[in-house]
Amino acid sequence: MNFKLKIWRQKASEQNGKFQTFRVQNISPDTSFLEVLDLVNEELVLDKKEPVAFEHDCREGICGSCGVMINGEPHGPGKGVTTCQLYMREFKNNQEIYIEPFRAKAFSVIRDLIVDRSAFDRVQQSGGYISVNTGSAPSANALPVSRENAGRAFSAATCIGCGACVASCKNASASLFVSARLAHFSLLPQGKAEQDKRVLKMVAQMDREGFGACSHTGSCFAACPKEISLENIARMNRSWTKAVLRKRQGSNS
């Protein structure tokens, strides 16, 4: 297969970027999308030119490192896949493919297709955990968790923190990401004690980082490689409201 790639090149966040065109030929449909970028880069390197910087690591859809806009879609065509799990058989021969970084106010460009997603870490840091020091845990089976809730908590916790939800959202909202983390904890009995504090702090931090508000278009769900449910956002809004009210009343739970 042959493709015309238009790849975003940008040296640093404070510099302007532009598209650069590359033609690639004789690509097997079983080649992965990132392997095509590898091929482009190998040629650039052999020509002693700067290769395209892009983030990637596990190449099996779990580390959340990779993620670019492909023809305007985060992680490209196909449902429930990350960029590294995308194969060229999903494209048409001779197709023109635009490749850009995830764009959001909170994600500045580091170089070419790499963006700074450290805002996600700072949101986590503000409360995305259950406080339990090593050594202090009760016996594992002391607290039963219904199979259903454990499954729902898992489905929320399966978020890989790639940022596709933010990139797909016209407001660059991080609501799907933050609500998934919150839902994971609020569905488990272990997470109840800190629930109010957690939701207030994480939502406040999310706002501070410059992520926009959620306007319920659902584009994040459509883009999410792990198909994280929109229900989580509703759950976050509900528990945030409850937490605010409880805080005003001065009660704690």
Partner: peptide, 23 residues
């Protein structure tokens, strides 16, 4: 090994469970 499981469950690791709610 046993302490690890206790600790991870307390952290909220959503391990697979039986219908009765146990691991």
């Amino acid at each position: 090994s046993n302490q690890i499981i206790d600790h991870c469950v307390a952290q909220g690791v959503p391990f697979a469970r039986e219908y009765g709610g146990l691991l």
